[in-house]
Amino acid sequence: MKWDYYLILITAALLAAIGALCVYATVIYTYSSTPLWTMGLEYKRYVDEMNRYAYLPVVLLLIVLGLCIPKRVVPRVLLFRFSAGILVATLLLVMAAGLETSLAFLLGIALALQACVLFLTLRKSRLVVFERRGHTVQVGSSLLHLGIVLFILDFVALRESGMHIGIFWVSALLMTGGIAISMFGDKNQYPFK
């Protein structure tokens, strides 16, 4: 069975894990016994804890995203080694500089990778391969994934920056434009049988 199939399953599982974390966070939030707890330190601890829990699935999702599309740009073995190296570097950075810096590092690499994918897709390069066929769909998908990475980077590293809302709008446009182009340009119901 093709490895794309497993990557799709892993992507779905990681997305479901983030969904489950959201349910867990809601339960913790709702059943907190302290009145007006969102005003104090307990709330800060809760936010930090949830951010820590979200870290792993987000990192893995970004790694999978890096594996999914550019699998013909470089040989598969090299791609795996590159991804494993990035993962190790990210985890080392957690110990050296903290969660946010390590995630920002990973997001920076993911952003560069997605920008390359978009560039190659726009040039109709055969180096990149998608699960879905059709140039319009592929451009839309590249825009969407670039937008998602930019959106997370904006949240993680630029929340206090003056450019935060401006970059947010760019990522929002990339995401919604990407969804519109990829979904409404899609004629094939099941590209992979």
Binding site: L9, L15, A16, G19, R132, F192
Partner: peptide, 23 residues
């Protein structure tokens, strides 16, 4: 809670759209 729920809903729909790629 509402933001958690919205993110949960969005990631689940994203998962649904990903699984649709393979029949």
């Amino acid at each position: 809670p509402k933001i958690n729920g919205s993110i949960m809903m969005w990631v689940l729909y994203s998962a649904y759209l990903h699984t649709r790629i393979y029949d």
